[in-house]
């Protein structure tokens, strides 16, 4: 039996001004998982991460890292965690190499171990040639990668990333995804918060959605996406049409002369839709989802109850 990488029970946070950020959440992340913690702004994601990393004091509840209670043995628990915060939190006047090596020292690594791991992770994140540059001279994407290298320098078993790809261009974002997948395959448990839902859908196996300080969904990505009863597809046609085809069983809508939209409910098959279009004499050149599937669910889960029920439960 494997120990949970993260186990949270009854976690509650009330700030000094009386604002309740967390209302007693329970959460478990299995060892080796790639886990998404999603929620709208102000939902409680960063507070949860802050408490796990001891940057925020909890009001109630318990947090265990690989079975170690952070209240009982904070040093042992902290050694297992690496954190990439949402905002840059290094001195911009320090050199890139120094920032990572100093972090290694904070975790007790010897000068030699720190130097070896600094080289290893700066190289892996494409920053080795910047090691002598002051951090203020890095681009936004480089600063994000610097924070990842810094979080990994002590080789944690649990890596927590709070919106690691915010403000990063798509090319770097995809290279960061590949890097994180590689880390996860090598055994590092990863918890990710992000506003790019495509990122969560493509990387994460399990997911929790937090809203107004409560976990509103906690399941596998597959099961969550399976809750979708309706998916909207965009169909591009080879030839223009005057109107949307009247096809029994399918409600096509015309977007423009060569583009249709189709709502496919659970139980309906794309093959049948294609066959229907073919019989109507229409040739399809391409097909895509109208929006990210997770995005559809996320909006519904964090919106009013009525609209959520329509989408998920039909």
């Amino acid at each position: 039996m494997t120990t949970a990488a993260l186990s949270i029970a009854g976690l509650k946070k009330v700030y000094a001004d009386g604002f309740t950020a967390l209302r007693g959440i329970d959460l478990e992340v299995k060892e080796g998982d790639f886990f998404a913690l999603l929620g709208p702004n102000g939902a409680g994601k960063s507070t949860t991460i802050g408490i796990i990393c001891s940057l925020v004091r909890k009001t109630e509840g318990a947090v265990k890292i690989f079975g170690i209670d952070v209240d009982k043995d904070f040093a042992a628990a902290k050694r297992l965690i690496g954190v990439v915060p949402q905002e840059f939190n290094f001195s911009i006047f320090e050199k890139v190499g120094d920032i990572v090596e100093v972090q290694a020292g904070f975790y007790g690594l010897s000068i030699r171990e720190g130097a070896v791991n600094t080289e290893k992770y700066l190289k892996r994140l494409g920053l080795w040639d910047k090691r002598n540059a002051q951090a203020r001279h890095l681009s936004g994407g480089m600063k994000r990668r610097l924070m990842i290298a810094r979080a990994l320098v002590h080789e944690p078993r649990l890596l927590i990333l709070d919106e690691p790809t915010a403000g990063v261009d798509i090319e770097i974002r995809r290279s960061m995804w590949a890097f994180l997948e590689e880390m996860n395959k090598a055994g590092t448990t990863i918890i990710l918060t992000t506003h790019y839902l495509e990122e969560a859908e493509s990387l994460c196996r399990n997911i929790a959605i937090i809203d107004h300080g409560e976990i509103v969904e906690n399941t596998s990505m597959r099961a969550l996406l399976g809750q979708l009863t309706t998916e909207t597809f965009v169909v591009d046609l080879a030839e223009p049409v005057a109107a949307a085809p009247e096809v029994p069983g399918f409600a096509f809508r015309k977007v423009d002369a060569q583009c249709l939209e189709l709502d496919l409910t659970r139980g309906q098959h794309l093959n049948a839709a294609f066959a229907a279009l073919d019989s109507a004499g229409l040739k399809v050149t391409s097909l895509r989802n109208k929006s990210n599937r997770l995005e559809q669910l996320f909006v519904s889960l964090t919106a009013s109850e009525g609209s959520a029920e329509t989408l998920i439960h039909g």
Binding site: C53, K78, I81, P85, N89, F90, F106, Y107
Partner: peptide, 13 residues
């Protein structure tokens, strides 16, 4: 600069 966080998350008494 919030770099104090890098010490607070580390196992430093």
């Amino acid at each position: 600069q919030r770099s104090i966080e890098t010490m607070l998350v580390a196992p430093i008494p």
